[in-house]
C-alpha cells in the first residue's frame, strides 16, 4: 500500500500492490482537489486509516475499505479554528484504536517570538467500522 500523486503536486491517491505480482491498483482517490493524504496506517481488520489536510494541518482521520475504496468514516481533528497546529503522528495501538498525536498553540500567526499558551500532544481516537 502506498500513496500516490496523480497530478504531481500532492498525494491524493492510495494504491495497493499485489503481493505476488506487484501489480498496482488504485484503492482510493481523494474526492476533491484540495484534500491531501498525509499518513496511511492499515488496521489489522483491513481498514486503511489516513490523515488528510487541506492547509498543511491535519484536518481529518478517514477510514477506507480496502476492497471497495469507499470511505467508511471521517473524524474531524478537533482544535480551535484560530489555532496553529503541529505534530500529527498516527498509530493503530494494540487496543484496536487509531491514535493521532497533535498539538496546537493559540497563536494564529505562528510568530516564533510570541509567547502564548500551548496545548501539545493530544490524541484523537477513531474506531474502525
Amino acid at each position: 500500500m502506498a500513496k500516490e500523486s496523480r497530478g504531481g503536486e500532492y498525494y491524493d491517491t492510495i494504491v495497493k500492490f499485489d503481493g505476488i505480482t506487484g501489480q498496482p491498483s488504485v484503492v482510493y482517490t481523494s474526492p476533491d482537489d484540495y484534500s491531501m493524504l498525509i499518513q496511511l496506517v492499515p488496521h489489522p481488520d483491513g481498514t486503511i486509516f489516513a490523515t488528510t489536510t487541506e492547509n498543511g494541518w491535519v484536518d481529518t482521520v478517514i477510514g477506507i475499505d480496502p476492497s471497495t475504496g469507499t470511505q467508511k468514516f471521517s473524524v474531524p481533528v478537533p482544535r480551535p479554528s484560530d489555532a496553529g497546529e503541529c505534530g500529527g503522528n498516527m498509530i493503530i495501538a494494540g487496543d484496536g484504536y487509531a491514535y493521532l498525536t497533535f498539538g496546537w498553540t493559540s497563536d494564529p500567526d505562528l510568530a516564533p517570538s510570541y509567547t502564548t499558551s500551548g496545548y501539545c500532544a493530544s490524541t484523537v481516537q477513531a474506531r474502525p467500522m
Binding site: 491514535y99 497533535f102 510568530a111 516564533p112 499558551s117 500551548g118
Partner: peptide
Amino acid sequence: DWVGNFTEICGMSPNI
C-alpha cells in the same frame, strides 16, 4: 498545557 511560543511547543514533537 504549556506556555511557550509556537517553536517551543511544536519543537517538543509529540510521538506515540
